[in-house]
């Protein structure tokens, strides 16, 4: 296992988090022009994306290197299952506990963040440490 403090890849986790948070706030402000409820719902939709995805990225890069690849794949499968389960639980909680809710703002922000998150990880990918 990679020793703590000695990483093989430089994972820009904090950068991703900052950029995604900024995008969520911008989307929420744009939706807020339709009303306060829409802005708030957009913010919640963005957070439903952000929390499970940050946890997923952290879990996948917990172990690195060729020797630990089978553990990394196990982590990947577990992290993906938990991510989908967390997303379902968050959506269920929001639809049950938040009344009223602006559904188009919630789902649109979530969908945009899913696509944007994938693109962000593509353009700002982890680099090997030299």
């Amino acid at each position: 296992m990679a020793r703590s403090g000695h990483r093989l890849n430089r994972v820009p986790l904090l950068r991703w988090l900052v950029i995604e948070s900024t995008a969520i706030v911008v989307m929420a402000l744009l939706w807020a022009t339709q009303g306060r409820l829409a802005g708030y719902s957009a913010l919640v939709g963005g957070l439903i994306f952000l929390v499970p995805n940050t946890w997923f990225a952290y879990q996948v890069y917990k172990v690195e290197g060729a020797r630990n690849m089978s553990r990394m794949v196990g982590n990947l499968f577990r992290a993906e299952s938990v991510k989908i389960a967390l997303t379902a639980v968050f959506f269920a909680a929001v639809f049950n506990l938040m009344e009223p809710i602006h559904v188009p703002a919630l789902l649109f922000t979530f969908a945009v963040m899913v696509v944007m998150g994938a693109a962000l990880r593509w353009f700002m990918r982890p680099r090997p440490q030299r």
Binding site: F56, L76, I84, T87, A118, W122, R125
Partner: peptide
């Protein structure tokens, strides 16, 4: 590992949106 991570993000985009709609 990096490529797998990026592909995983692309792969689960549609199921994630599906979960929200469901």
């Amino acid at each position: 590992q990096t490529k797998t991570f990026i592909m995983a993000g692309l792969l689960d985009a549609v199921p994630m949106i599906g979960v929200g709609i469901a």
